[in-house]
Design a protein around this nucleic acid. Structure first.
Lengths: 216, 216, 216, 216
DNA sequence: AATGAATGAGCCTTCATTCAT
DNA sequence: GATGAATGAAGGCTCATTCAT
């Protein structure tokens, strides 16, 4: 039977390690980060990683899982209610809001961005649990707005167009910051813009396919 | 001073090293890639890297520069001619065409994608020479389409929306392939979609700001 | 001062540790065996070894002492009775019987064999308490059979010849098993063979030195 | 095409490493020996082991192979000539002579003794190339002396008796030295003793089975 | 220009041991 | 008496780099 008090201390050590590892992995990447950098930042001994996570890669996987759970917890309950436009706006707000939620560690999106660019074995979980469901959700909204006349292929492309505008901001925010830091300052303006930009395009798409007047 | 024959051989060795390094860096990333993997693939001795590039990082920088030059050479002369819509279409085609040009090494966009996600000192060159000019060019097209009434802030956001749709496909193609491989099959369809989607949104934006009827 | 109940539990833990350690040390050797392997097999906590034996080497010494005591307990009372040949047979049976006594743990002879091949500080006890007394005893039997005319040097050599035949079987049984597994199947036949083989040689030696006809 | 001069230097480094490793492995055993102890004694860098032998275990295997080849080279050409007794004497002299050949490194038999007591993956080669052929050869000599009437089972046991007397001296010489150092002083006396002791026993065995007077 | 050999620095990991409970 | 947690020391190995040729 585990000692309760020690168990609490152990959980605290795990937490400190994951936090420190998240920062270091985000700064340097999986390979360039060293165990010593992580344990120094966490204020524990090097061997603690082996004790709590077996090895460096298992720690990395735990960090990714943690980053994932933090992001998933933000899922808005309100995003399936209201008009299509309201749903779209809610979704965009949810995704972009990730960037501005100061209660979440800043390394989270950076680290997931790395993982998406340079997949390790941990990628599958990220895609399956985070990316794909969001992409699917966008597809359903797009279908709702564009109407049933638009062929599936076009819906997929349009969903990609919508999703890309959000994805770029979250997972390539460092690049955006370099290109155009001002654009990130106004979170609500961004949400509004992406929603209107996409709505206009989707409504036009709907019209194009209404009454068989579509070109292709 | 090296004689001509040796110089030719040396150039050939450099070329082989850059080619091999491009592949290995794209597969594993800067830190995880080892010099031995690169020299083995290039069929040369380990010491050759230090001889030709002084160290591993210089080789990496040379590879990035090479990838950059290959991409920049594709710049279409036609993209500044014709109507705004034609210009937009030409631009989208140019960027997306990167992915489908089989005369270029496949590791090129992957490697640049890594660099954008996990910047090294080489990032500045990539942003300055490749990304920023393209972003600026998109802004000018967007301004042309949206008209002078639209505030600069909105133009920047709209340019981001257009640019994001292309960027995602090129520099996160591996992710797109996982999510929805079919969408990448039809290059021309993609170009057409992005152009129409963006045109519709931009035209709507123009209209919204015409005659002072705009909301914000 | 520990109470009785705990003391009994403590003795049980010690016993389990020695048993488990015997097996693991026999399988892997002193250095390759790890404390975790031992405590896992014993079903106790890692710290138990330090608590009961202060350190790994003390545990090893305790295991050797235990193996020694198990072997010494087998000493046959009958081996000093009867004719010289009977004594010899009794001795050979006693030593070889070690291998076939299923009430003893199998790791015992293996472990002692390791210790003899790669001495640690524990070797002295093994030689002093187990090996040397047996070697001396063989010498006395050989002297009894060969008679007083045979010079001491020859008796020592002959004792070595007798002792070697038994020693090999017990402490290199794994090697014998690889070379000729059948020979180990018939314990009684082995005892009989070694006795007869040695008796014939010793009797011949006695004859050679009788009446001053010896060569050297 | 490898540079000849460097190649010679590389061979010299390999030789120094094997020599040093032989000593250290013999002193401490495979696991207790450290790479640093070996490279320090060889006067080379730690990484040299990786460069020349991949890893510690491959070095160990190379050392065992080297020890084996040194021992095998001593195989006497004369041992299959002359009478059975002469053959037996030649064989015993060959095996025991191993111990007294000062041109051979002293760690050789110690190391092989360790390997026989605590087999690693390298054991197979030792048994197959060194031990088994010698055991077979002893069997053939024993058969020659004992005659065709003696059943195979008895020949195998007798060969074991002969072989054990030599084996003990060579591969447990450290133990013998502790028990009775004098006996090792006179190499020729030992050879003579083992030959005569065994001959007497084998001749007696032959007689016992002649004319069907044997007991079992 | 090119290469085989060698090296120093550093990394991940293991392990026996200790500490607090 | 027993244990979960933590740690310091050390080991094997990898790797970029350098050196001599």
């Amino acid at each position: 039977m585990p000692n309760v008090k020690n168990n609490v201390a152990a959980q605290e050590t795990r937490r400190k390690l994951i936090e420190a590892a998240g920062e270091v992995f985000a700064e340097r990447g999986l390979h360039a980060a060293t165990i010593k950098q992580i344990t120094d930042r966490a204020g524990v001994n090097t061997a603690a990683i082996n004790y709590h996570f077996s090895d460096k890669f298992e720690l990395y996987a735990a960090v990714i899982r943690h980053a994932l759970s933090l992001t998933l917890e933000r899922r808005s309950a309100a995003r399936t209610m209201g008009s299509h436009e309201q749903q779209l706006r809610a979704y965009v707000a949810e995704v972009i809001g990730d960037l501005y939620d100061s209660s979440l560690p800043a390394w989270r999106t950076t680290l997931l961005g790395h993982e998406l660019a340079q997949p390790t074995a941990a990628l599958d979980a990220v895609v399956d649990e985070l990316i794909r469901p969001r992409a699917r959700f966008v597809q359903s909204i797009v279908r709702g707005i564009a109407g049933s006349k638009v062929p599936e292929k076009q819906v997929l492309r349009a969903a990609l167009s919508v999703w890309a505008q959000c994805f770029i901001l979250v997972y390539n925010s460092e690049l955006i910051r370099r290109l155009n830091p001002d654009v990130l300052r106004d979170s609500e303006g961004l949400v509004e813009h992406i929603t209107e930009f996409s709505m206009a395009a989707l409504v036009a798409m709907r019209k194009r396919y209404q009454g068989g007047r579509h070109r292709r």
